[in-house]
Nucleic acid binder design. Structure first.
Lengths: 250, 250
DNA sequence: CAAGAAGTCAAATGATAACTTGAATAGATT
DNA sequence: AATCTATTCAAGTTATCATTTGACTTCTTG
């Protein structure tokens, strides 16, 4: 081997640092964490429940994500709330997910295995939904846990967590055109909601993406007051999601 | 531990598959490869030279990137040309780089160590350059190796590889406003060109990003004919970059 | 068909990652 | 101060990764 050109070590170090961010995302549990945190901040135990891992292990994953610059923790008493470091982290996650969807054939198979057959689950793009919404022609159902709805939702959407969905249906005319959405393209709630509605003979589709993508696209939303201090206190006072609520969420 | 909720394994498998793409980018040499291939296709030995690694090792990295869906190889005789699987892969790389730049403090330090002091190297955004360019007020210098210029460059730019830059300067008026660009924000060529020009008392700045970002922004470019077959033959017939040309490129 | 060139494969080694378990903080509550 | 709770730290095990070396395959050229 001939001698390395000058700057080789510095260049390697620079690119290794750039790659460190990808490394942090290079684990299924950690991508799941980012996906959850794209909906809003969470404390360690809640995240552990979402990803089905021990608290200790989850804590280590959270540390790695934090050191990689992807998360920003916030202490409050004995609790630590984690959130994405910025909106661009959510954009990075979307870009990653889209490339994987487009170029990794395996993803399609695994998505079908997780979400169930998508035969009867017709999709709708954000642009299409925005148009129909402005014409008042649809009933939009946010099927995420109610806490996520409260933190922010598509303007005009109704909160309809899956468990409560059947009882809520009386409110709407049978001829309504329903659109369900949840956390993102690989969130099961929306698929399940559409299947439930269609099984009752109603017209229903799902938004192809989720709330974070909708908001980033600059489409109309209703957000919780950005008064962080007081809002944070309220959030902390609320009970964490029950095991039933968070189990198997996507 | 209580039993896992149904769908947990399937969900883990799905997110692991999504994370596999990040894993592929989670190595400095592989991010360097992606950065190089964002300029156009290359054969294995050239890539090995660019990243300063053995051909065998480079080949393995290329395999990993390919299996992750990020690259698409093309055989031609005994040679194998690698290219990015799609434009979105380049977008993913940009998103990753931007998040790292924004949130990893270390990057700034390492960039300074690699690129040298940026005190005298003023930057210019793509939007600013586009405006000045349309008014004909600047001389735009593409300081990448000439082969990359030929594959595609900013409309109106002159090819000025660093080694030839000094001799080319006679062509331009001393009062000209120079803007240099190369592969991306962490490409050394542009910084070196700006320092060289300024040392001669000329007015020079660098484009803050690089050619791939310019093209993706939809700004005006000159591209080699997209007649892939014939063009590929021509490219293959051309000699690979010399060690001097590719050494220390960024 | 033999020789050469470009890539890939396979085995071996040292380094890093993921998860579990049990202990240690740090702030809240009594 | 003593106790409780949420989170983090530390150690240990098994698995995966990066790199080198040398052999192997495949296509081209004489």
């Amino acid at each position: 081997m001939e001698g390395s050109p000058p700057g080789r070590d510095a260049k390697d170090a620079l690119f290794a640092a750039l790659a460190s961010v990808a490394k942090a995302l290079g684990n299924g549990h950690r991508t799941e964490i980012v996906d959850v945190l794209a909906q809003g901040e969470r404390q360690v135990e809640e995240i552990a429940g979402e990803i089905g891992q021990s608290v200790a292990n989850t804590s280590q994953h959270l540390q790695r994500l934090t050191h990689a610059g992807l998360l920003r923790p916030r202490r409050q008493g004995t609790r630590v709330f984690y959130r994405l470091a910025s909106e661009r982290v959510a954009e990075l996650w979307s870009a990653l997910r889209d490339v994987a969807t487009e170029h990794v054939a395996e993803v399609e198979v695994l998505a079908a295995a997780y979400l169930g057959s998508r035969d009867g689950v017709e999709q709708l793009s954000a642009a299409e939904l925005a148009e129909r919404l402005s014409e008042g022609r649809v009933v939009v159902l946010d099927v995420r846990p109610s806490r996520e709805y409260e933190a922010g939702h598509i303007a005009g959407a109704e909160s309809a967590p899956l468990t409560e969905l059947p009882e809520l249906l009386d409110r709407f005319p049978e001829t309504a055109e329903f659109v369900a959405y949840c956390r993102g393209p690989y969130c099961v709630y929306a698929d399940q909601a559409v299947r439930l509605l269609r099984a009752r003979g109603l017209t229903a589709r799902r938004l192809s993406t989720g709330f974070p993508e909708w908001r980033r696209a600059g489409l109309p939303v209703s957000l919780a007051e950005p008064a962080d201090r007081t809002k944070a206190a309220v959030t902390a006072a609320a009970p964490p999601l029950s095991a039933a609520e968070r189990a198997d969420a996507g």
